[in-house]
Amino acid sequence: MSKLPITEADLHAYVDAVLPDDRRAEVEDFLAAQPEEASRLFAYQAQKDALRQLFNPVLDESLPAELLELAEKPIVPAMEAMATPAVDMKRRPFLSRWSMQRIAASFAIALLSGLAGWLGHGQYQATERMAQMTPLARQAAVAHVVYSPDIKRPVEVTADQEDQLVKWLTKRLGTPVSPPKLGTLGYELIGGRLLPGNAGPVAQFMYHDSSGQRLTLYVSTEQTVSRDTGFRFAREGAVNVFYWVDGKFGYALSAGIDKGELARVATAVYDQLENK
């Protein structure tokens, strides 16, 4: 059996655990016979671990408001074509292209608000249309408004019986459901409840922070449009809602807190669900 010589690239691939099994075994044999090389690779592995230890905490920092703002799509797609040729980047106008887009966006918003106002007299139909367009966000917001002010009985099963809550909701929804942990963001689980959705049960988890501010996560498993949506934002009265669809799951996070703070929590929830 002739073996290919072990290369420097093999050694790095070994550190990064991307070698196929048989080649890895060959590298291990090589290292057993070459203690100096082994200690060099050992140091590389240690570097890698140390770099993660040093920089991973950045992942848990709350996101600066400017960045959250920029994560929002800056312009309405239809406006893009209009905004783009308006400014020549190379000539560095006194307004940056970015601010031009912002201005374009605010025009678009003004235009839309005007349109909304004009539609105002047909308010009932508009509301109806809204409900059809964003049933998830709307249902979640209504559920939030109904249950979160309840002092005595905000939830059916409290957080001290979290195991039972998870078991129960998992059984009723027919799919594993569990509340994300938001303690690091200052939100503790109060508990959860089962609610009627469009065609069956949905779950609601409720959290609160030290000031008593409540936040609810609405979890539906009846999303039939199999297309995943982006992070969407909706406002229903005083309640802000971030919602998204992931396969059959629809998630909506509602609270009467400002959009930036809610986005921060929503990101954490999304990450936890993503890494489940």
Binding site: L51, L63, A71, F231, T267, Y270
Partner: peptide, 20 residues
């Protein structure tokens, strides 16, 4: 590319930028 996917990438972009 939409807001949700961007939001999800933000922490990683920040970590890499900080390290750089």
């Amino acid at each position: 590319m939409d807001s949700r996917t961007i939001l999800a990438e933000l922490p990683r972009l920040r970590r890499y930028a900080r390290a750089m």
